[in-house]
Every structure is written in C-alpha cells, then in structure tokens.
C-alpha cells in the first residue's frame, strides 16, 4: 500500500512539474526564468519515464534535453542579454485561445482518467498485481535491437527531420545577395 501511494504521489508531482514548467516557459517574460522553467518541465518528464520503468529513456531525457539542448538555450539567453523590458507582454488573444485549448485537452484527459478509474476495481489491486517486468525491460539492449532491426527504416527516416532542421537554419542565416 505504501508503495502504491508513493508511486501515485511521485507521478502526480512529476506530472505537475512538467505541466507547470511548460506553462511557465511560455508565459514568463524573463527569458532566463523561461529557460529554467523548461528545464523543470524536462526533468518532470524524465521523472515520469523513470516511474514508468523506462529508465533509459528517462536518463537520455536528462542528458540530451536538460543537459545539452537547454544549456545551449541558456548560453544564447546569457549572450544576448535580453532584459524583461525588451520583450513584449504576452499577447492576450493567444493567451485566451491557449487557455481554451488547454482546458478542453485537460477535460478530455480527466474524463479518460476518470473512466479508467471507474472501470478498475481499486487502484492498489491493479498496481500490486501487475506482472513483473521482463528482464532488462526499459534498458538499452532491447531498445537498441528494436531500433536497428525491426524499426531501422523509421529510425533512419527520423534523422531526415534533423537534416531538414539544419538546412532550414542555414537558409535562415544565409545573407541575401544584395541586388
């Protein structure tokens, strides 16, 4: 019972971290706090992955997103040295639509969760009688095998999106020929 409560509480805390962090990253006007809020969101997501048993994905989430990508964000913010006054206030229209969409999404999510809870006899029974996870579940060896055999084509295809990003970035910074 203790483990069940602990799991539910930890999942809720991580989920709240991710949600609040994401919302703050969009709404905060001070860029450095916005980046830090995004770090918080990433760490919350990593926590959820860990609790769901996907330890490898959680670790990579921390190393790649929180540890590498957002550090470069932080660098840019520090070097550009924007002050909060330089940034226009959050546009009201977008805030309104954003809140509406968020509310609808949240209601949908809540209804799904509620119906799931109503169908299940009791949460502790489900969580206590889960089949034990197979050996090495959520770790690197099975994931690597799956990625490079069964899912090799989609995996390689995904890297094309990175290529598109690089081409797009070099196109954006390219100097227009003065005519």
């Amino acid at each position: 019972m203790f483990v069940v409560v602990l799991t539910i509480v930890s999942l809720s805390v991580c989920g709240a971290l991710a949600l609040i962090g994401g919302a703050l990253a969009v709404t905060l006007r001070d860029p450095i706090y916005a980046v830090l809020a995004l770090v918080k969101a990433m760490l919350g997501l990593a926590g959820i992955y860990f609790l769901l048993g996907a330890e490898y994905v959680g670790a990579i989430q921390v190393i790649v997103y929180a540890g590498a990508i957002l550090v470069t964000f932080l660098f840019v913010v520090m070097l550009v040295n924007l002050s909060p006054e330089d940034i226009p206030p959050f546009p009201r229209g977008i805030a309104l639509y954003g809140n509406l969409i968020l509310a609808v999404a949240w209601l949908l999510l809540l209804s799904t969760a509620l119906s799931a809870i109503l169908e299940i006899p009791a949460p502790e029974q489900v969580l206590l009688h889960v089949e034990p996870l197979p050996y090495l579940y959520g770790t690197l060896p099975p994931l690597g095998k799956a990625l490079f055999t069964a899912y090799a084509f989609p995996f390689e295809l995904l890297s094309v999106t990175l290529l598109i990003g690089i081409v797009g970035a070099s196109l954006l910074v390219q100097k227009r020929p003065s005519s």
Binding site: A59, I60, V62, I63, A66, G67, V71
Partner: peptide, 8 residues
C-alpha cells in the same frame, strides 16, 4: 547514464 546525467 545516471553519472552522465548528473555531470551534464
């Protein structure tokens, strides 16, 4: 990977 995460 935990170590690399902490370091990063």
């Amino acid at each position: 990977l935990y170590l690399l995460g902490v370091l990063s």
